[in-house]
């Protein structure tokens, strides 16, 4: 069999690739470029698909729009609220599950349940749990003498409610990845550390954490990127609004508003392009930091 490319093989490959490439070029590759062009449409008639004017006006408009700055800030607060606590919690649970206890499979199943369920449905359920008068959370808080909190309608508490829901939803995924990472660590390292008399904490600090750093690195990237893309949760939790007084307006929500509610395609695309740049930047920063501190074995 030939291991060098030939024209005959190229023709054959084209046939095999045709279905996938038609879809991917039309709906993945072309729109990436098109998206940038749309962000330059400063005067666009969508219904007749006619562009009257091009320019960078949308980007200028975007950075002058206080709502966009607010959306960016809210998104960053959301990421900071979700990512570190989710990583700490899921690592702790993964460590507990990794102790070879009985029922480990059972617990893993339970923690993983939210992953397979519709964000919209569970956000609606959480909206009910957060209900200020009849919600479960306020009922539990009343045991400790805490007055009912208006989770969904108070701008101060809307973001914490969103963060709690998101941590709950994403925990199972992180736990599974951490468990896979933990199970990849060679048991001999622990044995050696034990022989040297290292305490449980020291073994965690000096064996587990460094050897788990690639996993940690992977989870952080994925979590930050997903955090920047949050939308469904907000739409469902706050009933099709970006929270009370725009308190959970995020970048994707802003894109949705400008695009689907206000039909400002150029401005929406400009915002989407900024989202892409931010995600890209984070990936690059993480890659650079990761190269220096992450221990690959």
């Amino acid at each position: 069999m030939p291991t060098q490319p030939t024209w005959k093989n190229t023709l054959k490959a084209c046939l095999y690739l045709l279905p996938a490439l038609v879809i991917l070029i039309t709906f993945n590759l072309y729109p990436i470029m098109k998206s940038f062009f749309i962000s330059l449409y400063t005067d666009y008639d969508f219904f007749n698909d006619v562009v009257y004017e091009y320019g960078f006006g949308n980007f200028a408009k975007l950075f002058q729009d206080p709502n966009f700055s607010k959306a960016m800030l809210n998104t960053i607060i959301f990421v900071i609220g979700v990512v570190p606590s989710s990583i700490v919690l899921s690592l702790a649970i993964a460590l507990l599950l990794n102790t070879k206890i009985k029922m480990m499979g059972f617990f893993r199943t339970i923690y993983f349940l939210p992953f397979v369920t519709s964000v919209v449905a569970v956000a609606i359920v959480w909206g009910w749990i957060f209900h200020s008068d009849y919600g479960l959370i306020n009922y539990f808080l009343s045991w400790f003498g805490i007055d009912p909190v208006k989770w969904i309608t108070d701008p101060v508490f809307a973001m914490p409610a969103l963060i709690i829901l998101s941590i709950w939803k994403g925990l199972g995924f992180n736990i599974i990845i951490f468990l896979a990472g933990l199970q990849n660590i060679d048991k001999q390292y622990y044995l050696a550390a034990k022989v040297d008399g290292a305490s449980a904490w020291n073994r965690f600090k000096s064996v587990t954490l460094p050897l788990l750093s690639p996993t940690m690195f992977f989870i952080s990237i994925i979590s930050i990127i997903n955090g920047f893309k949050v939308f469904d949760e907000i739409f469902a939790l706050f009933n099709g609004r970006p929270g009370p007084a725009n308190s959970t307006l995020t970048v994707v929500y802003y894109v949705y508003q400008k695009f689907y509610e206000e039909w400002q395609f150029g401005l929406a695309s400009a915002a989407a392009f900024v989202l892409f740049l931010v995600v890209f930047l984070f990936t690059v920063v993480q890659l650079i930091i990761g190269k220096r501190f992450v221990h690959y074995h």
Partner: peptide, 24 residues
């Protein structure tokens, strides 16, 4: 490599151009 590169682009970015394509 080009295909792998597209994986870095969030699907939200594709929303508007794909909507325009589908309406056309």
């Amino acid at each position: 490599a080009v295909l792998l590169g597209t994986m870095m682009v969030p699907s939200e970015v594709l929303l508007i151009p794909n909507f325009v394509t589908l309406s056309n």
